[in-house]
């Protein structure tokens, strides 16, 4: 592997990183919105979202990526491959994040709500000042865990032609005819990225346990 190969590898890592980061940011927010809507228990929307969550959790990322990339143009919507990749990862991770947020809602102690109501707090203020900050701390370990799952699933976007850290190994191997080294290096890069996330998860867990105990 020459200098050019290494640069390609790093570029692939950067593509994986930025697509994952955008999807993570969107997924966390959309997941929260879905959880909030589901907690409001609107009759039909709640069922639709329930089906969406079940669907997104059962669909493999590869299938979803191909589905989005290939079938949207037949509706006349032409998607850029990077945009399809982000859409695919976001659709998938939002469903998991929605469940995490919902769990935090359901496990929230009602005593604090009663105390806030007794003090005459409005519901919005209660949510913003009391409920939300605690929910963030409580669900952070699970959210970070989901982030590392998303990065582990991100090679799926290679199937629609995004040159990410996995696909770039094929490109390098096509030039050097030595696939072993680039694949191993890509593996080590993934290990570094996800290893950092796992460390973060452990830190978040310690913080959450400290606050819960």
């Amino acid at each position: 592997m020459d200098y050019y190969g290494w640069m390609q590898l790093l570029q692939g890592a950067w593509t994986t990183a930025w697509i994952s980061m955008v999807s993570i940011a969107l997924g966390v927010v959309i997941g929260l919105v879905i959880a909030l809507i589901r907690m409001a228990k609107l009759p039909i929307i709640d069922q639709i979202l329930g089906v969406y969550v079940s669907w997104a959790r059962a669909t493999p990322l590869v299938t979803l990526a191909l589905f989005i990339f290939l079938s949207f143009p037949s509706f006349g919507i032409n998607l850029d491959k990077h945009f399809s990749a982000i859409l695919c990862l976001t659709l998938n991770t939002s469903a998991f994040n929605a469940e995490i947020w919902r769990n935090a809602f359901l496990n929230f102690s009602s005593g604090q709500k009663e105390a806030a109501e007794a003090l005459g707090m409005r519901r919005m203020t209660y949510f913003r000042r009391i409920m939300f900050p605690q929910m963030v701390v409580m669900s952070l370990p699970a959210l970070v865990n989901e982030m590392s799952f998303l990065i582990k699933g991100s090679p799926a976007i290679a199937v629609i032609g995004v040159v990410d850290l996995t696909r770039v190994t094929n490109r390098i191997a096509a030039v050097t005819y030595e696939p072993l080294l680039p694949i191993l290096c890509a593996g080590i890069l993934y290990m570094c990225i996800i290893g950092v996330l796992i460390k973060l998860q452990q830190m978040a867990e310690r913080k959450a346990n400290y606050l819960a105990g």
């Binding site: 582990k152 991100s154 030595e178 072993l180 890509a186 993934y190």
Partner: peptide, 17 residues
């Protein structure tokens, strides 16, 4: 810390080398 696909790549594309 490893994506599944990288392991599959390693076995299918890497090991023949």
């Amino acid at each position: 810390t490893l994506p599944f696909l990288i392991l599959a790549y390693l076995l299918y594309y890497g090991l023949p080398q």
